[in-house]
């Protein structure tokens, strides 16, 4: 009887203790998109300094394409303050070409391009969430924007702006 009681006590404690094991939340921040913000760049004539202004840029049309693929987007008269450009996860370089008409209907078509490079790393979040490729070390190797861009975050993550392009 004493043996059985001792056995049951130890077993009960073991069962109760395992009830505290919980599954972690599934938070995946991996993204396969480069998020670009368009910002207006205004010159202060008095101080002769440029400052970034938060405003929507309304292009008459914008067409974005990548080499060897159909156009990613073709947008007409939609105010855009940002764009999320999908990347090819199997490549380490992406060149995007923007063909846009400016803010006026009579504005000429302008072709601009920007080339990004990036690397990747693998992370296993959990058995329930899965394994993901994370893209990092985002860099601009070629651009028709000159110095009118800024890399804000070199990791491609959800809800994170990577590049700011100034107009």
């Amino acid at each position: 009887m004493k043996v059985a009681a001792r056995f049951l006590l130890v077993l009960l404690v073991a069962v109760l203790s395992t009830s505290c094991f919980t599954q972690p939340d599934c938070v995946v921040t991996a993204s396969m998109e480069i998020k670009i913000d368009f910002k207006q760049n205004k010159l202060n004539s008095r101080s002769n300094t440029r400052s970034v202004v938060d405003t929507f840029l309304r292009f008459q049309s914008i067409k974005i394409s990548i080499a060897g693929k159909d156009s990613l987007f073709s947008l007409d008269t939609i105010p855009r303050s940002s764009l999320a450009l999908p990347i090819d996860p199997n490549q380490s370089t992406m060149k995007y070409t923007f063909v846009r008409r400016g803010r006026q209907a009579s504005s000429p078509l302008v072709t601009e391009s920007i080339t990004f490079t990036y690397s990747n790393e693998t992370r296993i979040i959990s058995a329930q969430c899965g394994a993901f490729v994370y893209f990092l070390n985002l860099n601009v190797t070629e651009s028709s924007y000159g110095s009118q861009f800024k890399i804000l975050n070199d990791r491609l993550l959800k809800n994170t702006t990577n590049v700011q392009i100034l107009f």
Binding site: M32, E33, D70, P86, I87, D88, P89, T122, A131, V133
Partner: peptide
């Protein structure tokens, strides 16, 4: 680990890795 990630854009093929 061997895994495949489905890309967000249908233009690209899935990413596969075996590490």
């Amino acid at each position: 680990v061997a895994y495949v990630n489905q890309p967000s854009s249908p233009l690209f093929s899935p990413f596969a890795a075996n590490l």
